[in-house]
Simulated scan of single mutants.
Amino acid sequence: MYTGENGYITRPELKDKMKEAVEACIELGLYVIIDWHILSDNDPNMYMEEAKIFFAEMAQLYANYPNVIYEICNEPNGVDVTWNDDIKPYAEELISVIRQYDRDNVILVGTGTWSQDVHHAADHPLQGDHIMYVAHFYAGTHGQELREKIIYALDKGVAIFVSEWGTTLASGDGGVFTQESDVWLNFLYEKGISWVNWNLSDRVEDSAVLLPGAAPEGNWSDKDLTPSGAYVRSKLREIN
């Protein structure tokens, strides 16, 4: 659920379409992340009150479904947005709201610098159970330096979840970096870190799974997949 970018803040009716997706995942027995997708609104506090109302409703609706995960701020960013001063206080407020209705489901908390500064969160973690800290990476842009931050955070005893990664540059383009993606996925498997790939769409973008014009109803074949989509599907099949 994008907040800006012509998203929820200006078009709250989008929430109904999101609920359709959540309920379809519940019916199919899939994990589903309800993602408050901040981006251009770099400080999550910008729309805190709207977020509290939104997640109060989501927690009341889906507390009894253990496959529902709440991601309360996608990618905090900007030099003035820090863990201690901005992100952590916001997370404390949102976690309190969710836990009024849902004591158990996982809550994902974005970290600074587009969800890369997991080490800062590990130094000053939140109180409570079933909280995980988010790391995002793009294989063509981010490498060992970010993996070291994740190792540091794990050594501090916090839980990490990769709720967005791509096979490309951080722009979403620049080709598919399969060797670098292999290094990342092997690292995540070794550390027991779950991941979600960006993105299942037919955008004209190298990180997209589908070629432009792929059928919106699904039932895709090999010819509908981009190189990134074919790579990610092969990795999912290896897991199973």
Rank of each mutant, 00 (worst) to 15 (best):
H130E: 03
D155Q: 10
I26V: 06
Y101V: 00
G110P: 10
Y133E: 02
V176M: 12
F137C: 11
N105L: 04
H136E: 00
G218L: 03
A170E: 15
E217V: 07
R203N: 15
G143R: 11
A135H: 07
L211H: 10
Q179K: 14
Y189R: 15
M48A: 09
S163A: 06
I72Q: 13
Q60G: 10
H124W: 04
F54G: 12
V81M: 00
E145A: 12
K223A: 11
G78C: 01
S234R: 09
N67M: 01
V204R: 13
L39T: 14
Y90C: 01
Y133A: 01
S194H: 10
A135R: 06
L210E: 15
K191L: 00
E57L: 06
T82N: 06
K15F: 14
A139T: 08
L108S: 11
I131N: 02
A153L: 06
G78E: 00
S181W: 13
H136S: 05
G172Y: 08
M58S: 03
L185Y: 08
Q116I: 00
S221N: 13
L108E: 08
A51N: 10
I95P: 00
D155N: 12
V176Q: 11
K235L: 05
N84R: 08
N219W: 01
S163V: 01
V196A: 11
V183S: 13
H130S: 06
T3P: 09
E27A: 08
N42K: 11
K156C: 02
Y65W: 07
E164V: 05
A121G: 00
I9W: 03
S171I: 07
E27I: 05
L211A: 14
D104S: 14
G166Y: 14
R99S: 02
H136K: 01
A214T: 15
E92Y: 04
K149G: 02
Y62D: 07
D43E: 11
N84A: 06
I26L: 02
Q144F: 13
V22N: 02
D35V: 08
Q127C: 10
V176C: 13
